[in-house]
Amino acid sequence: MTLIFAHRGSAGTHPENTFAAYLEAERVGVDGIELDVQLTKDNQIVVIHDSTVNRTTNGIGKVKDYTLEEIKQLDNGSWFAPEFDGEKVPTLTEVLEWLQTNKLLLNIELKNETNIVPYLEELVIKEIEKHNLVERVIISSFNHYSIRKINKLNSKIECAILFLEKLYEPWNYATTVRAKGLHSYNPKTSDAMIREAQERGYPVRVFTVNKEERMQQLIAQGCSAIFTDYPERALQVREVVRG
């Protein structure tokens, strides 16, 4: 069965990477949540996509220049719609604690593809282990050095390479960094790649799939998972495909 991951929560209907978006995804019955993490000035793990707070909060500046206390003062919801005024930037710890109340899977994307973020891998793994969620977490990144490092630190955590272009036999490349999953960009993902990768034991999870026709194609083919901003829509499509 194709799993449905809510991309940054239910990001099509709620402000991304907020508890409002995560709770909506849980409400509609999603299989997993995808989110992005990076570090504050005082080395706290916060859940936010961009390297700056400009787009999704009422603040200005780089995430790494804010302390946790400072970033928690920002409004993280009203940019999306007035009713979400007061939403805060979550910490990874808060999300992991919430996961103790449900059975959702979690995909953590490390946002360190352009900036060197010392100790991000160690800190993230420490939190996962502390909350006993090793079996329910996938770690992905466009920084494949980071994926290799995660595997060295805890080989029990599934790692996946993120990639935007067509790779030749990506399952072979994945072995070089000990990745076990392939997270591929929807426009560059072929049916043939999905089929061969999965036959070789490499789950393919495609991002970001928001059109119903494409959802239907991927689900009918048996793609391992899709990431979508509209999880409720994707779940409805899956029900139709499965009959």
Rank of each mutant, 00 (worst) to 15 (best):
R178D: 14
F163W: 03
K166F: 10
R195F: 10
D85F: 13
R178N: 15
K88R: 15
K111C: 01
V134H: 08
E24A: 12
L235C: 10
L110H: 12
Q217H: 13
P15R: 01
N172F: 10
Q217Y: 06
E169N: 13
K149W: 07
K130L: 06
E239N: 14
K211E: 14
V241W: 05
S10V: 02
K156I: 00
A179R: 00
A21D: 02
S224M: 07
D75I: 05
N43A: 10
Y145M: 11
D191A: 11
K149A: 11
K72E: 08
T57Q: 09
R242C: 08
E94L: 01
A225K: 01
P90Q: 06
L35S: 08
S146W: 04
T189R: 04
A225Q: 02
V209E: 05
E213M: 07
E70L: 01
L105I: 09
I150G: 09
T101H: 11
P90W: 01
A197L: 10
A225W: 01
E26V: 06
R8N: 02
L104A: 11
T2N: 00
G9R: 01
L182M: 08
A160M: 06
N154P: 07
I157Q: 00
T189N: 05
S10Y: 07
T189P: 04
E16N: 03
E199R: 12
E212S: 12
T228H: 10
L120F: 10
R242T: 11
R242S: 12
Y22S: 01
M193K: 09
H7R: 06
D65C: 07
H49D: 09
I138F: 08
I147N: 03
H183E: 11
I60R: 14
L74W: 05
G222N: 12
R214N: 12
D36F: 02
E121Q: 14
Q221W: 07
F163I: 02
K180G: 15
V47M: 00
V241Y: 09
S224V: 01
I161R: 05
F207W: 15
D31Q: 13
L120I: 15
S224F: 14
T52G: 04
L167P: 03
I60W: 10
N172M: 10
T91Q: 09
L167F: 12
P231R: 05
S141I: 06
D36S: 03
G86P: 12
E94H: 00
G201S: 12
I71N: 04
N107P: 03
A11I: 00
N112D: 15
I71T: 05
A21Q: 07
F5H: 03
E199Y: 10
V137Q: 02
I128V: 06
R27I: 04
G201I: 13
G12V: 03
P15Y: 02
N58W: 04
E24S: 13
E239R: 14
F227S: 02
E94P: 00
N58C: 12
L164C: 08
A225N: 04
T67R: 09
D85N: 14
